[in-house]
Amino acid sequence: CHSECLGNCSQPDDPTKCVACRNFYLDGRCVETCPPPYYHFQDWRCVNFSFCQDLHHKCKNSRRQGCHQYVIHNNKCIPECPSGYTMNSSNLLCTPCLGPCPKVCHLLEGEKTIDSVTSAQELRGCTVINGSLIINIRGGNNLAAELEANLGLIEEISGYLKIRRSYALVSLSFFRKLRLIRGETLEIGNYSFYALDNQNLRQLWDWSKHNLTITQGKLFFHYNPKLCLSEIHKMEEVSGTKGRQERNDIALKTNGDQASCENELLKFSYIRTSFDKILLRWEPYWPPDFRDLLGFMLFYKEAPYQNVTEFDGQDACGSNSWTVVDIDPPLRSNDPKSQNHPGWLMRGLKPWTQYAIFVKTLVTFSDERRTYGAKSDIIYVQTDATNPSVPLDPISVSNSSSQIILKWKPPSDPNGNITHYLVFWERQAEDSELFELDYCLKGLKLPSRTWSPPFESEDSQKHNQSEYEDSAGECCSCPKTDSQILKELEESSFRKTFEDYLHNVVFVPRKT
């Protein structure tokens, strides 16, 4: 048989008469490798580009789960590009990614509803959504962080984005990388972005840091009482949809009607710091009717980097990364020049730590249904340095008659930039024990000054392991946590139920 035959053949030295091919099969003959313009397919066939392209389009058009959109890589027609490569849609070739590779997620039936953290986790790592997304989240724990972890990498949506009755959302900033909504599939009414009845939605994105392009379709905003109209108009300008909307697409009466839409800028007039305090004062603000001013709200939190936005980490279910302080308005003076500047002394802060701070007014709604208010920009203030805590785990070892090696770990709280350490030492008198000992005694162990690591005695271990207080009263049991108490109650309830079950099964009433 021919060298490319495997198993047997019907005619000697003829690659077209093989029972099976050793390498690849091409047009009725066995070959060692697939010549151009053919590609290896499933490690035994040679196919042309049209064959591989037909497989790709067949799966793409069917949208069946589990099928493969075949691509070409290293002269092979394979189910998908290997790690580190992405497909070129024009020629199906796998090309190296520039940075992290995109991950295209194809949605069944063309859309997916995100109504819980669990459903959001199914899209973790996706960068391109081939379909439409509907966000409908009523509640949950730590929602802002969970949504950002699972949806934060999405850069492109081919269909539309719909935010509907998501009472738990305060902001859409968890879509931190969303840059493009194509609108290839539109919501009824030709809408590519749809926001309806979101009672706590206050911000779409921080438009000073976020760009969003909507290729096709219109915007729809109705019944978002805490979303200011200025935020919607800003989205029109940034996304390129200005002029597409009709009169009733953006409701003037049901958007922002319960919001404090600040239209003035508060400026800080005085800032002073110490290692654990920050004193702030800002310019006074009074609405047209000074009785509408209820006070100020001061927001602050630790910020290692200057990239904080107002609604980071917030949701309507209680999660809030900001510390909020309510401040009463100052006494009002008739003389504008003698107006008191409101302020606040922030206490209990960490030394040498940068804080993000902003302040906003708290006002009631005027009778004319106009909203007044003022808010400052987010500023960054760093507390002063102070003395560091003591170095940890000092170790001293003498390696000769004239040297001592000293080692330690950095302090747990540096409280500033540590530039150097101060080492103090003092000579001590020799131990009298060394002169009084009889060095001729056998088995004498000389006193040693070398360091030995501390260890816990058996008594201390027994005390720590004991669940009861000892007789001397030195140790006591740790208080039980809520989960331990709940577990004990469940076990007790189970024992009672099981005992009742045994009584009912074992003891049967005697027939009379």
Rank of each mutant, 00 (worst) to 15 (best):
I154R: 01
L108K: 13
H222R: 08
A149P: 05
T113C: 15
R291W: 02
C261R: 04
T254C: 09
R370Y: 05
P225E: 05
G295I: 02
P329Y: 00
I214A: 05
P388M: 02
V325G: 12
L169E: 13
L204V: 07
G243K: 14
T386L: 10
G348W: 10
W286A: 03
D206F: 06
F193Q: 02
I379L: 10
P391V: 11
P351E: 03
L133Q: 02
S319A: 06
L147W: 04
L349W: 00
P411N: 03
F268D: 01
T383G: 01
W282Y: 02
L186Y: 12
G373R: 03
R164L: 14
L108F: 12
L153T: 13
R247V: 11
L178S: 01
Q339E: 04
L204M: 14
S376L: 01
N211R: 07
E237D: 15
L143Q: 07
F311V: 07
A144L: 15
A259P: 06
V170P: 10
P336Y: 00
S400G: 12
T383Q: 01
S171H: 15
M235K: 01
F175N: 03
L107A: 12
K253W: 14
E187L: 11
T254N: 12
E155H: 07
A303W: 09
N248M: 13
N334G: 08
A316L: 10
I163L: 00
S208T: 11
N130E: 07
W322P: 07
N399I: 12
I405M: 02
S116K: 04
E283V: 13
E148R: 15
I114V: 10
T361G: 04
V381R: 13
F296N: 00
K360H: 00
A259W: 05
L349S: 03
I357R: 02
I250K: 08
L229P: 04
L123Y: 05
T127P: 03
F299W: 10
D257K: 09
G243E: 07
L147F: 10
G318V: 06
C105G: 02
S260W: 05
I379H: 05
S239A: 13
D115H: 15
D393G: 11
V359E: 00
E187Y: 03
P288K: 04
S239Y: 15
W286R: 05
A316S: 13
K337T: 14
D292F: 00
K162L: 13
P410K: 00
E148I: 13
Q382I: 13
L212C: 03
H233F: 02
D315P: 14
G343S: 08
R281H: 10
L107T: 14
C261S: 02
L331V: 13
H233G: 08
N255G: 02
T383H: 01
F296V: 01
N130K: 06
E109L: 12
T113P: 06
D335S: 14
S389A: 09
D393F: 15
E237K: 13
A144Q: 09
K277S: 07
L345Y: 12
L265A: 09
L108D: 00
R370A: 15
G343M: 07
V390I: 15
S321V: 08
M346V: 09
G343A: 09
W205I: 06
K337L: 12
S402R: 11
T113F: 01
C228H: 02
G183Y: 05
S319C: 13
N150H: 15
G140F: 15
Q245I: 09
R369M: 06
S338Y: 11
L219S: 10
G110N: 06
Y355M: 05
L298D: 00
P287C: 02
N150R: 04
I232L: 13
K337P: 13
A356I: 12
S389L: 06
S119M: 08
Y167R: 06
L331D: 11
P284E: 11
L161S: 01
L133S: 02
L186N: 05
Q403R: 11
L212Y: 04
P287R: 01
K242M: 10
F358W: 10
T273D: 01
I135L: 03
E156K: 05
F268I: 06
Y372A: 03
V324G: 01
S239I: 10
C126R: 00
T371F: 04
H341R: 10
K103V: 02
I188R: 07
S158F: 14
F220D: 12
H233A: 05
K360A: 02
L298T: 04
E236M: 04
Y160T: 08
K162H: 09
T273S: 07
W205G: 11
E302M: 13
L298R: 01
I271K: 15
D335P: 11
I135F: 04
D257Q: 09
I378L: 14
R291C: 02
Q121A: 00
F299Q: 13
F221Y: 11
I250V: 15
V170A: 09
P388L: 10
F193P: 03
C228A: 02
C317T: 05
R165A: 04
E302D: 10
Y372V: 08
W344N: 14
N340Y: 10
E155L: 10
K226Q: 03
L108M: 11
D377S: 15
T127C: 12
H233N: 07
N320M: 13
I154E: 03
E156M: 14
D393K: 15
G159I: 01
I129N: 00
F296S: 00
S398F: 02
R347G: 09
N200W: 04
R244M: 07
